[in-house]
Structure formats: structure tokens, C-alpha cells
């Protein structure tokens, strides 16, 4: 039994097409695991399958030995949180009320108002994403990046031991991207298992402790960024020509794309 997320030989189909094909991967507690791969590779499907949101046709998905998709929903919601790719929303909720949704799995049916502990956790989660001044703003009037940060805060309010995020940085400015990923890395370092789908390979290389590369529904590589990110892999998976260099101070791999002349 592993201490983290173990996905073993998972396959899934949608609309008669095979979307995931024998996916086997692992995400360890204490580390930030990046899920990368081109559009349509199956990243979102894999994240959703992990939480039982889409059915799998074979394989097992466990977290600390527990069958995650089969877990009672409420128990699962106390262990695992998910930040989806966000869309437009008409919700007439304030920023704080959105983050408070993360406390639902912990609140009893008979409880009329959130407990002081809920309020405390929500305040901290909002502060963690740098949104403290925005608590009483209407969520649907906020920018995409602000909404995304609040969704991350909502997930943090679940105090999850497993945190799954689908492209959590795609609406964020550079500073907010670095802040968000740093925040997620801190969460990981304090013991959470964090798995996130990312498109920006340089960000993935800079922040993630491990990368899993998905291509046409299969895992084609996984391991430390410097081992996974090679010119050959980038060519086969992304069809791009790239040179890998080392970051001058951190020594992490950086990708320099060679543009066609």
C-alpha cells in the first residue's frame, strides 16, 4: 500500500472512443506532480476519473490504499478536492460564499450557519490566494484570474490530503501563476498529494517534483522533470523542436523552442 495516489492500468471510453488506455501512474505525498500532454491527451479525463466523475472500464485508483472512485462521496470530499477548468457562471454569491462551499462536506444538515472554525479556515484560504480584500465582491463580476484563485481557495478550504487541479494557472497573470504554484508546492511540502494538469512546460519544469506525460490516452513518460523533458519526447508528443537548457540559478530544465525558419 502506498501513501499517495496510485493509478493502475486505468482505461476509460467516451462516445465509443478509447480515451484512456492502461494508464499507470503515481503521485506521492509531499510532492507536486505535474500532468502534461497535448490537447486531447486525456488529462482532464484522468483527473475526473480519479474522483469517480467519469466511469473507468478497467484498472484501480487508490489513495492511501482506499478505492477513491468507490468511496462514499462525503468521505471522499473530505479527503480530495478538485479545481476544474472554469467556465462562465451566473451565481449570485460573494467571493467568500464561494470559498465557503468548500466547507459543505464538513457541515451537518442541521447547522444553519457556518461554525467559527469554518469561518477561520475560509479566511485563511482566501488569504492564501491573496484575495483578502475581495471577500464581499460578487463572484460573477470578478475576472477570470480572480475566479480561478477563489476556486483554488475553495479547494483549500476542504483541507484536502489529495488536491487535483485542472490547468489552475491558465487565466492567471505571471505573478499570480508563480504565487499559485508556489502555494501548491507549499501545500505539497506540508504533506498533501498534489496532482495538476499544466500546459506551460516551463512552469511545470520549474515547480513540479515529478511529471507524468500523457499522450493519446497513454502514459509515455514519468519521473523527475530533467529526466522526462527531452528533445526527443517533445518532438514525439508535442511535435515541436526544442533545446533544453538549465536555469542559471535553480538548475531546473528550461525549454527553448526552436522556431521553424
Amino acid at each position: 500500500m502506498s501513501a499517495g495516489l496510485d493509478i493502475t492500468d486505468v482505461s476509460a471510453t467516451a462516445g465509443g472512443e478509447s480515451i484512456l488506455n492502461g494508464v499507470t501512474m503515481r503521485a506521492l505525498p509531499g510532492s507536486l506532480t505535474g500532468l502534461i500532454g497535448p490537447n486531447g491527451a486525456g488529462k482532464s479525463t484522468l483527473l475526473r476519473a480519479t474522483l469517480g466523475l467519469v466511469p473507468t472500464t478497467s484498472g484501480t485508483i487508490t489513495f492511501v490504499g482506499n478505492d477513491l472512485p468507490a468511496m462514499p462521496r462525503r468521505n471522499r470530499a473530505r479527503v480530495a478536492a478538485f479545481v476544474e477548468q472554469i467556465g462562465a457562471n451566473e451565481a449570485q454569491l460573494t467571493a467568500r460564499e464561494v470559498v465557503m462551499l468548500g466547507r459543505i462536506p464538513f457541515q451537518s444538515v442541521w447547522q444553519a450557519e457556518p461554525s467559527p472554525e469554518d469561518e477561520q479556515i475560509v479566511t485563511e484560504a482566501i488569504a492564501a490566494v491573496d484575495m483578502s480584500g475581495f471577500e464581499h465582491r460578487q463572484y460573477n463580476t470578478m475576472s477570470g484570474g480572480e475566479q480561478q484563485r477563489l476556486q483554488i481557495a475553495r479547494a483549500l478550504a476542504q483541507q484536502p490530503r489529495l488536491l487535483l487541479l485542472d490547468e489552475p494557472t491558465n487565466h492567471l497573470d505571471v505573478h499570480a501563476q508563480l504565487t499559485a504554484l508556489n502555494l501548491l508546492r507549499t501545500r505539497a511540502q506540508s504533506g498533501a498529494t498534489v496532482l495538476l494538469a499544466l500546459h506551460d512546460l516551463n512552469l511545470a519544469a520549474a515547480f513540479c517534483d515529478a511529471l507524468v506525460v500523457l499522450h493519446q490516452g497513454r502514459v509515455v513518460a514519468q519521473g523527475a522533470p530533467q529526466d522526462v523533458l527531452t528533445p526527443a519526447l517533445l518532438r514525439t508528443v508535442y511535435n515541436v523542436d526544442a533545446t533544453l537548457v538549465s536555469h542559471p540559478t535553480s538548475g531546473r530544465p528550461m525549454i527553448a523552442y526552436n522556431l521553424p525558419a
Binding site: R76, F82, I86
Partner: peptide, 14 residues
């Protein structure tokens, strides 16, 4: 309340 962000979001909130 959990439904505001869709069925999937509601499911992940238990």
C-alpha cells in the same frame, strides 16, 4: 448550493 458550479463540482463536494 453545491450545484452552482455544476454537477461535477457538487459531486466533489460530497
Amino acid at each position: 448550493d453545491a450545484f452552482v458550479f455544476g454537477d461535477a463540482a457538487a459531486a466533489t463536494l460530497g
